[in-house]
């Protein structure tokens, strides 16, 4: 999802006999849905996996500001401009909440930022796709936020307290994001011929990348098995993808748009749609940073970080001077 293919210890899940007494106590708490808090004992692997996952999630929010921010200055009405700005601002807020959650595990926001900028930490593949037309802003809200919500709602129950609490706040704020996207799509699907074409084109380009957001099938992944035992991952990627497709197809039909998949068919037996897998080679290429999108996003983030250094340092220096003057006066 926003955190795709997060590696855990890679060891597979330990049996109770293999666990130390501390590990057993820890696992009992997780199993009993008792939240783990920052100062509680936790396995090193749990901590490391969480930092990776929350970090990747936070980076995705921050990098995710860019494709949508791309249209703030071109939004077609004052109201759309305000809505989009408020939405992209929310993404910054969500990144902030998540960085703070990760900081409770002993890593600083600056350290995580450096890891993003050096390419050591990843962000979701979806944000490497360009937003070419205004309809893309509708499609991103409808599909990308729709897919994100699928994953984030269950994470409100995740075992790590600060992460779960950040997700509660995020889910509450996100509730308007998907709706504003669908609202844009409705307006366009009922609009002029050009607008309808634009809307269909956006769906065509964002459909498969949205399906990729859930990550490749992880039915047999040791990482996912461990993360699920620790309750930092709640559903398998395939479960969520299926749920997303089942929810989204009727919404596309309502818009009068067609999902770009000739194999899409209702399957009465499983009570869900059959659908084509996205091109996973493309996914791995994009995740690894191929294509202009990745370079552009990282260059933008690096520039913002480097250009802002003097501001961060300047304000800190002033705060220190002020504190020193106060001490001197006392």
């Amino acid at each position: 999802m926003y955190a795709q293919m997060v590696k855990s210890t890679g060891q597979g899940v330990k049996s109770r006999d293999e666990m130390s007494a501390e590990e057993r106590d820890f696992q009992d708490k997780v199993d009993a849905d008792i939240r783990i808090e920052p100062r509680d004992w936790m396995p090193e692997g749990y901590k490391k996996t969480l930092i990776r996952q929350i970090g990747q999630h936070a980076h995705s929010e921050i990098v995710g500001q860019l494709p949508e921010g791309n249209w703030i200055t071109r939004a077609p009405t004052l109201e759309r401009k305000m809505i989009l700005l408020a939405k992209v601002q929310d993404e910054a807020g969500h990144g902030l909440y998540l960085y703070c959650a990760a900081e409770t595990l002993g890593v600083t926001r600056d350290e995580m930022t450096e890891m993003l900028l050096s390419g050591k930490m990843k962000y979701s593949s979806i944000f490497n796709y360009p937003t070419l037309t205004w309809a893309d802003i509708g499609a991103v809200g409808w599909l990308v936020d729709g897919a994100a919500i699928m994953n984030q709602v269950p994470l409100q129950r995740t075992s790590y307290g600060p992460y779960a609490r950040a997700m509660v706040r995020i889910c509450k704020e996100e509730s308007f994001h998907q709706r504003q996207g669908y609202d844009i799509m409705m307006r366009m699907a009922r609009g002029s011929e050009a607008q309808k074409r634009m809307a269909q084109d956006a769906l065509n380009r964002f459909w498969y990348p949205s399906l990729m957001m859930f990550g490749p099938s992880d039915a047999n992944s040791v990482h996912s098995e461990q993360s699920m035992a620790w309750k930092i991952k709640i559903n398998t990627n395939d479960e969520l993808r299926q749920k997303f497709v089942d929810q989204t197809v009727p919404q596309a039909e309502y818009l009068g748009l067609s999902v770009p998949d000739e194999n899409l068919k209702w399957n009465e037996e499983k009570g869900g749609y059959d659908f084509s897998e996205p091109d996973w080679d493309e996914f791995f290429d994009v995740l690894r940073g191929a294509g202009p999108g990745n370079t552009q996003r990282l260059t933008d983030r690096q520039k913002a970080w480097e250009d802002g250094a003097w501001v961060r340092e300047g304000l800190m220096a002033h705060a220190e001077k002020k504190a020193a003057r106060k001490v001197a006066a006392e």
Partner: peptide, 19 residues
């Protein structure tokens, strides 16, 4: 409600208001 970064207490209040 959460945390944030700020150079000093006064700015922390303003940032909290905005965040």
């Amino acid at each position: 409600v959460g945390s944030l970064h700020a150079p000093d207490a006064e700015t922390a209040i303003l940032n909290a208001r905005d965040v």
